[in-house]
Structures are given as structure tokens and as C-alpha cells.
Design a protein around this nucleic acid. Structure first.
Lengths: 142, 142
DNA sequence: GAGATATACTTGAGCCGTCAACAATATTAG
DNA sequence: CTAATATTGTTGACGGCTCAAGTATATCTC
């Protein structure tokens, strides 16, 4: 399982860079990105949690930070009083764009340089098979 | 970078299982494994840190736990007074074997079932190119 | 061989995320 | 309609790891 180790190094590196350059965690960044892509630029916390692979409490904590910085706002749902949306603010969108400038480059620096397009495809195909989101827990490991 | 997400899920799953079954963290397990394989069943903390990709302090903390359980002992180095070895105890070796029983199976369940031998090789070849251990920081990202 | 620099390790503070427990609302079944 | 169950989210306690700073020993340079 040695190969899996490499990932943590990469992730950490990208994370530190992002924090240093823009004061955003890698997870912060991805949350902003998912919100940006979502319809109405907002998502339920559950769905967000699923997308970035965090627990509900993890998302609550993460959003606390983004809310404090004004990058995300809370919004309630008309049809279901249980849900609170995370809503991207203009400021949040601006921040995302700012951050993406360097981040996208960095990611290319780490991957583009080391793999051909074809190899990246192969990697995707293989890694996609790993159980990730919304997997029935029982399906894996006993 | 979606593909990297899958990893954290896998890792977490293997970790929980290991904790539930044997009271060992995935990192605990890997440390024991590295010690077991090492000459004299002991390693300097620095080297251990490098192998499991932790910082020196991380290793100190991790070993605290293993020492408390008697799975690992401290041993000093005759030729260099700065180093303290982490030395696998008999108990630690026993524990490792016990844990490996289920862990190896679990890993196979997650990988063997999803990939052919050839695909695993491919994965290795590709992922090996990622900067991992002992990489000159400056080489990546700016 | 003395001073500057590098290496091995530890410690305190703090961040990020988990788990377990809980509150509130929704849904389903009898 | 009501009781049981499921879903969404938050909170407190805590674990695991990092970073920055510090100690102690080694090595290198003049």
C-alpha cells in the first residue's frame, strides 16, 4: 500500500501552498469550487459533505470558517426546514477565482509534468474503481 | 483532482477497521511493519518518519502510544548519542502478526477484487512518479 | 580546537476532522 | 392521526498531526 502514501504527500503540499498563497485549505477550495459549479451556487450541507468526503460535522466546521470570512452564507430551504444551504457569496466567488490562478498551475506542475494525457486517463479509469462517495459501507470490508 | 479523494475514503476505512479489530491505527500498523522488516527490528526515528511520511514530531507522538502499549521500546545508539531507536518488542511483533491476519485480507478485498495483477502494476508504475519521500521541496511547486 | 552549521529528537500550542449524543423536522406504517 | 423511523444538521470532547521553538549532540571549516 506504499503507493497510497504518495497521495498524502501531494495533498499536503498542495494544501500548504494554497494556505500560504490565499489562506485557503485545500478543502476550503474544493468546497468553494463545488458551490460555484452547483445550480444557484448553493448546496445542502449533506451533499457538500459527500462531495468532499467529510462527515457532516466536518462540513459544519469547515463552513464556520468560510462563513466567518464572508465567502459563504447560510440560506434556509423553503420546502424542508431541516436543511440549511451553503451559498457562495460574491466575495467567495472572487476568492475562488483568485485562488484558482495559482492552484490550477500548481496541479499541472505536479501532474501534467509527470504524466501524459493518456496516462492521466488510465489513472482515472483505475482509481475510479475504488469505493469512494456514497458507497454502501457494507459492500466493502465485511 | 477528484481521483485523489478516493484515497482518503479508502484509507479511512482501512484505518477504522484496524482500530476496531486490533486497536491499531493504520500508521501504527505501518510503523510496526517497517520495524519488523528492518535490520535488528529497529529504526531511527528520522528514518521511520520518512517511511510513513510523517514529521519528526508526528513520529514522536505515534511512538508514545506504541511505547505505552509495550509494542515498541526506545533504544539508544552507541555511535551517535542524538538518535534513539524505535525497537520492536516481541509483544509488538505478535501484535503485528495478529493484525496482519485481518488487515491483509481487507486490503485484498479492496484492491484484489477490483484490479487485475497487471492493473496493479500499472497503478504502481504511475503513482510511483508522484513526488513522495525525501523529495527536494523546491523541486515541486515554485 | 572553537565557532558556525547541521542533524536528531522533543515539547507546547493549535488546527482539522472524527465520533457520539442530541435537537429538530420529515416520512412512513399501522 | 400517531407512533416509529429516517434525515439534516449542530455541539462537546478528543485524536492525530503539524509548525515553531528549543535542547542536545555531531560535523565541518578555518
Amino acid at each position: 500500500m506504499r503507493l497510497l502514501r504518495a497521495h498524502s504527500a501531494i495533498t499536503r503540499r498542495l494544501n500548504s501552498k494554497l494556505v500560504a498563497d490565499h489562506g485557503l485549505t485545500l478543502n476550503d477550495y474544493e468546497v468553494l469550487m463545488h458551490l460555484f459549479r452547483a445550480e444557484g451556487q448553493r448546496l445542502r450541507r449533506v451533499d457538500l459533505a459527500e462531495q468532499v468526503i467529510l462527515t457532516p460535522s466536518g462540513i459544519t466546521r469547515l463552513l464556520e470558517g468560510l462563513e466567518r470570512c464572508g465567502l459563504v452564507e447560510r440560506a434556509s430551504c423553503a420546502s424542508d426546514a431541516r436543511v440549511t444551504y451553503a451559498q457562495l457569496t460574491e466575495q467567495g466567488e472572487a476568492k475562488l477565482h483568485e485562488a484558482s490562478q495559482t492552484h490550477v498551475e500548481d496541479v499541472h506542475g505536479l501532474f501534467g509534468d509527470r504524466f501524459s494525457a493518456k496516462e492521466i486517463t488510465t489513472l482515472h479509469e483505475l482509481l475510479e474503481r475504488l469505493p469512494a462517495d456514497g458507497v454502501d459501507e457494507s459492500e466493502c470490508l465485511e
